[in-house]
Design a protein around this nucleic acid. Sequence first.
DNA 1: ACAAAAGTGTTCATCCTACACCCATGC
DNA 2: GCATGGGTGTAGGATGAACACTTTTGT
Lengths: 232, 232
Amino acid sequence: MPMTHDAPDAIIDALSIDCLIFGFQKNELDILLVQHGEGISKGKWALPGGWIKYNEGADDAAARILHDLTGVSRIYLEQLRAFGDVHRYPTKRVITIAYYALVKPEAYTLGAGFTASDVKWFKLGDVPTLPYDHSDILEAGLRHLKHKVRHEPIGFNLLPRKFTLLQLQELYEALLGQKLDKPNFRRKLMKMNLLLPCKEKQTDVSHRAASLYRFDKKTYDKLSEKGFTFEL
Amino acid sequence: MPMTHDAPDAIIDALSIDCLIFGFQKNELDILLVQHGEGISKGKWALPGGWIKYNEGADDAAARILHDLTGVSRIYLEQLRAFGDVHRYPTKRVITIAYYALVKPEAYTLGAGFTASDVKWFKLGDVPTLPYDHSDILEAGLRHLKHKVRHEPIGFNLLPRKFTLLQLQELYEALLGQKLDKPNFRRKLMKMNLLLPCKEKQTDVSHRAASLYRFDKKTYDKLSEKGFTFEL
DNA sequence: ACAAAAGTGTTCATCCTACACCCATGC
DNA sequence: GCATGGGTGTAGGATGAACACTTTTGT
């Protein structure tokens, strides 16, 4: 019997959510995985996921799952797409909607209700074999991210609020998988007028301190309306 | 009671599919709509859609719906994304997975099992008010298409197999919403080596006949592997 | 002094744009 | 011959890659 508004908190059958949560540390892209406590794939690391309630939107469900896991809200979160192969899930037919999130190091307050052994950051190179079609989802998410990051200024969501130009460059080098020329990268970014100088410098570095910048979202929104598009 | 393999042909509850089917005629982008024969929105034009069976993948379901409607298979078809707002559908909770298809004029054999009054092409300017969140889906699809067409050679799916450079240019002008310079457009495309000359010319035109070309998918696939990316 | 990274300048090839121009064909 | 679109040429500006160079700061 299909459930309706009579049971608003009940979950929708055959439809789940999975989240790709990306972070950036030590010049490497990381992904957050959870360890299954029970069920068929007990002990296996997998993408964090959950079910959609009848009385919440799909986006809201993804945000809820993310919040439960990290304790943080207002994180960059977008839908990737749905994965609907017949055999993607072994025990019954489940279609999943995949989301991807980009979190700043400041938000790395893991595990509201979780222990360190439940939730862990994995460097992309160290990701274990994932169950179901989670490897496909991860691969699709990475490809999507790699592409999107070049055309929209979303990469800033992976950096602390204040960052140096080198940090930004290294982020892009990691995401795009290629070295970039420092002077050229610097000039290109500066010419966009999207970096707001913090009038501060790095501290505790054993070399000349770099200026800190913030991403200027307001200006970006204004420029976007006028037809400007962020490139590379 | 959740349905399982016991009833493989049964449909999945609370999950539907909607298709944006784009065509190109008279230098205008068209979209295919169907008229609802029954139910709440009887008489209204809406996106063609359907339900997913327990024994078919989501992509397969979209292809099936598309085939039932147009009688054609092997059409360019990709998932846009899922739309999961709580209130997007009035009578009960339904999340939909939206797909978009690009069809060539040759495939305009409408209505296997439909009459002309059931299914119709609408110029984008003449699209009536759509029910549910179908306007949102259309808008999202258009935005996506506009972007994607610049970075991947999918526009060819909207043209006949053999086309002239001007047809191609006019397609892009319609999609991007701007005039393009003929000589430059021509050179840019030719330099990519993705257009295979048919060694044929137009007939029945009251001016100098243009050469016909085909899109060279094989070469494109080869170039892609080597890192080439189609741009504009 | 040296290491390490911050920043600046300059060259050169390449690409893109804008526009002028000639060609072929039907009426 | 003239309208219509097919198709080519070219000058000049903008862009971007490559790399040399100077500056600042901690050890």
